[in-house]
């Protein structure tokens, strides 16, 4: 039933989420020393500050009290202060960056999916022709191109040499917008290069999967039957696609993490003010509260997006509504 499928998926997402949080809880505590002494070393903190930190994280208490305190602070948004941007709170920083990452992720997930599936459909429909082998072969070649490398080169060619697009940031600094359209145009202008770089380096696996799944479906009996009925190509394609799209949608759900990973790297290259760039900065400055919080928000984003992909899958495949998840 629908509800059962949903419950199973929800439960799985919840377990995944808790696992991630537990890893981030255990990791700094399993390291030699404890989080407070690591910080003390890093920033030459006086012993009074260390005492406050130990008190705050309850590091002198048994581990289950520490765990409760950890969850309490995490879910109430009391993430403390950033070391690098000191007077600012971690919560403020993360919430300010989140919309940019969602924008970049949302846009590039759509373009990656559409480009990948579109090329896959063309290759699959014209299977074993020259078009097919050109698309498949270039997909394999581009599959291993590192995101940030292509992003760097794009930045250099289209931003620096040709000056078509801005090299860094998400908005033109110091710009005053006369109306909403100017603002949107500026945002999109800054978004173009990162999205193109991400699309080009991430679409390949969708192309390969879609192509193979379409080729499989097209060799099935019901397609032969449709052809025998004399239906036009367009109709046959519609029937084939409905089945062939399932694997790429599953893949979108599984590999969203990969796109997020790409966003971290792309944001770093473009100094795009999102969560990914924040993670990079917090690694650079050993800003652990920011690192943990940014990672926490990123995990939530991915898990919510995963659930959306599951819902899409359910819409596409009626069989799932009547069988157990």
């Amino acid at each position: 039933m629908v509800t059962r499928f949903l419950y199973v998926r929800l439960l799985r997402s919840l377990i995944v989420f808790l696992t991630i949080l537990l890893i981030v809880f255990i990791l700094p505590r399993a390291m030699p020393g404890n989080p407070a002494s690591i910080l003390a070393n890093e920033y030459q903190l006086p012993s009074s500050t260390v005492k406050v930190l130990i008190e705050m994280w309850k590091l002198d208490r048994p581990w289950h009290e520490q765990l409760i305190a950890y969850f309490q602070t995490l879910f109430t948004g009391q993430w403390g202060f950033s070391y690098k941007y000191y007077p600012r709170t971690v919560y403020e920083l993360v919430m300010e960056r989140l919309p940019w990452t969602l924008l970049l992720l949302g846009t590039s997930s759509v373009t990656v999916f559409l480009t990948g599936v579109g090329l896959g459909v063309i290759a699959g429909w014209r299977r074993n022709t020259k078009v097919d082998s050109i698309i498949t072969f270039s997909a394999v070649l581009i599959y291993a191109v590192p995101y940030y490398w292509l992003a760097l080169l794009f930045q250099y060619v289209f931003g620096y040499l040709l000056k078509w697009f801005p090299i860094t940031q998400a908005l033109t600094p110091g710009m005053i917008y006369r109306n909403v359209f100017e603002y949107v145009a500026d945002v999109l202008w800054h978004l173009t290069l990162p999205v193109i770089a991400m699309t080009l380096t991430a679409f390949a696996s969708y192309t390969l999967v879609t192509r193979n799944s379409l080729v499989d479906i097209l060799s099935e009996d019901f397609i032969l039957a449709l052809k025998a009925m004399g239906l036009p190509d367009r109709t046959i394609m519609r029937h084939a696609l409905r089945n062939a799209l399932l694997p790429p949608v599953t893949m979108l759900a599984i590999r969203l993490g990969t796109i997020v990973g790409g966003a971290v790297l792309t944001e770093t290259v473009f100094s795009y003010p999102g969560i990914g760039y924040l993670i990079y900065e917090s690694i650079l400055y050993k800003d652990y509260p920011v690192l943990n919080a940014a990672f926490f928000m990123l995990s939530i984003t991915i898990i919510v997006a995963n659930l959306c992909a599951d819902l899409l899958y359910m819409l596409l495949d009626p069989r799932i509504r009547y069988t157990r998840g």
Partner: peptide, 19 residues
């Protein structure tokens, strides 16, 4: 295995490597 496959690996790999 199911849980590990659903974990976003690159962000977690980054945080693991950082620690």
């Amino acid at each position: 295995i199911d849980i590990m496959l659903a974990i976003p690996s690159l962000p977690l790999i980054i945080i693991l490597a950082a620690y």
